[in-house]
Design a protein around this nucleic acid. Structure first.
Lengths: 332, 332
DNA sequence: CTGAAAGCGCTTACAG
DNA sequence: CTGAAAGCGCTTACAG
């Protein structure tokens, strides 16, 4: 029912082969015929059937993206950047949300791999020892997780966390409490290690509560632990936990930024709009997304190339949720 | 390189036709052969090439979903429900985020339509007079927008808003200020109309500021207008605007729930976790998503069927951001 | 520069 | 119940 290559060919009185080549912009077609064909095709409203093209070319022009949870504000900027970058390269994006079910990732990837040219795996939760499976499925780029021998786009939290610890010590805090993320999370292990290093460097005592799911509700739960413990400085695994924490502390009339300092990770849009505004570590999500697409597309075009590992940096954004120990801020 | 139908057929010593039928579960194949074929296929790791199947069947087994902005918390529940429902029906989902660019929707839909069996258009921003174009592209279901003659899943805000006005009047508020959403938004027009009706019913004065984009930042801007105006009750187009408003009011030491009452729309996860918690109108996003998939799939299977119009209801969820005029709440 | 032919991997009337 | 054949809409060596 849609107009096909053969229809255009017939209308032009020439062979489908030539129409195909003309539309592909092949230099082997005489310019005048090419123009004529193009005009006719346009005017007939011809649009190629991508499915048919995929089958004959052995390439789908699509990539698959798997994320744990699109409702977590960490992911939308990455997804948007992936879509934008892919669209620019005329590549479609199939998105799968696994709802944080680590056990589903491999199976979903297996199905997805058959319909796309390659996969971007964002913050996969699959255990270390099964990660190699993904690489066998299709060309793959991992985002926010290091996998030996595979292409990765990593977010290096060390700088941001080091700045966070420095900032807190400058404000007089001697002890820092870390609200840990999910145990299976690679980011969490990375953040905890960086934090330990930074605390050692500045001579600060570090302790930990958790693990917590990356959701505000978990931060609410954490709040009561934090209150009971008497810590004056908290670094949360992510902004969601930090925001939940702050909301609950406010309920108990604790003044965040005065009685207690809170730092998140992600620098999500909400962090600038909470009250008080949330000091947070900026994570270049959008950049990670577009770099991932570039890496994947390059791997598809040059199958031989070495899998690249890109590390992106982070930095601290200071806002209202951190302040000096026991000292009143500006008079109001 | 992957194992194909022909490979399986050869391994079994029978024709590809029969293998195809056996795997499709056709009753025309002798049960014993069917079992044998299945075992061999399984053991060879055969998985059908969906692209090839699509081409020969004229159906892709995928649906396209277009949303204005995945970063807006209104959409993730809908998207997740669509994915879950589609996955259960063995249908893939191609997701496109238009970044609130109304002008891009039609073009993106056009491209998408060629790779899927049908489209779900969530809260499309395209002007009224071009909406019919989508229907011509492919089988379509609209979510959160009424389109004459097309299948729609609508969220009827009237009940929720009526409850909201009733709630506010019961608390003693005589005037209500509405913070309007985007002008091109169908929801906004619908909400404004329902609100006007409810206010008329309860004899409340209604005025309006806006339009505002559905983002917290817009709520921050709105806050200064609201403060200057002296209104004691505000209903915002959505939770994001309401949350931005609350954050900014808090900065100015206004006590939301006491000095002023604020109501949002969406009942997003954050509304229960802000401080104070946000009274909001619950919108059944997840239900809308799965109903939309059902509708679309039914249209694909029964092309003749009439396009259904489903209306989902809303209701008010009362939390901490609304309170009596000028009266102190419980002593603490 | 252009065309006829084969092929991508499946499905499905049409014959047995 | 099973097989040979045609076809889905494209691309691309292979000949001219």
């Amino acid at each position: 029912m849609a107009v096909t290559l053969a229809d255009v060919a017939q209308a032009c009185g020439i062979s489908p082969s030539t129409v195909s080549r003309a539309l592909a912009g092949s230099p082997k077609v005489r310019p005048s015929t090419r123009e004529h064909i193009r005009r006719v095709a346009e005017q007939m409203g011809y649009a190629p059937n991508r499915i048919a093209r995929s089958l004959s070319m052995g390439r789908t022009g699509a990539i698959g993206v798997i994320v744990p949870d699109i409702a977590n504000p960490f992911f939308p900027p990455i997804i948007k950047a992936i879509q934008a970058r892919a669209a620019r390269k005329d590549t479609a994006v199939l998105l799968v949300d696994t709802d944080e079910h680590a056990g589903d990732e491999l199976e979903r990837a297996r199905v997805l791999a058959r319909q796309v040219d390659g996969l971007v795996l964002v913050s996969p939760r699959t255990p270390e020892d099964q990660l190699a499976e993904f690489v066998r499925l299709a060309p793959v780029v991992f985002v926010n997780r290091r996998v030996e021998g595979a292409a990765c786009v990593l977010i290096e939290n060390a700088d941001g966390l080091q700045q966070a610890v420095q900032h807190l010590t400058a404000l007089g805090h001697q002890r820092i409490c870390y609200l840990a993320g999910p145990r299976r999370s690679w980011s969490n292990r990375q953040r905890r290690a960086s934090l330990a290093a930074a605390c050692a460097e500045f001579g600060v005592e570090l302790s930990e509560f958790g693990p917590f799911e990356p959701q505000m509700q978990a931060g609410v739960r954490a709040a009561d632990l934090v209150r009971a413990s008497g810590y004056t400085a908290v670094i949360a695994y992510d902004d969601l936990i930090a925001l939940g924490l702050m909301a609950r502390l406010a309920e108990h009339r604790m003044r965040v930024g005065r009685d207690i300092s809170v730092i998140g990770v992600d620098d999500s849009p909400m962090s600038g709009l909470a009250y008080p505004t949330l000091t947070s570590i900026h994570v270049p999500g959008a950049e990670a997304g577009s770099v991932a697409v570039d890496l994947l597309l390059r791997r598809l075009d040059q199958p031989g190339s070495d899998p690249a590992v890109i590390e992106l940096e982070t930095h601290l954004v200071i806002r209202g949720s951190t302040g000096s120990v026991r000292l009143d801020p500006l008079p109001t």
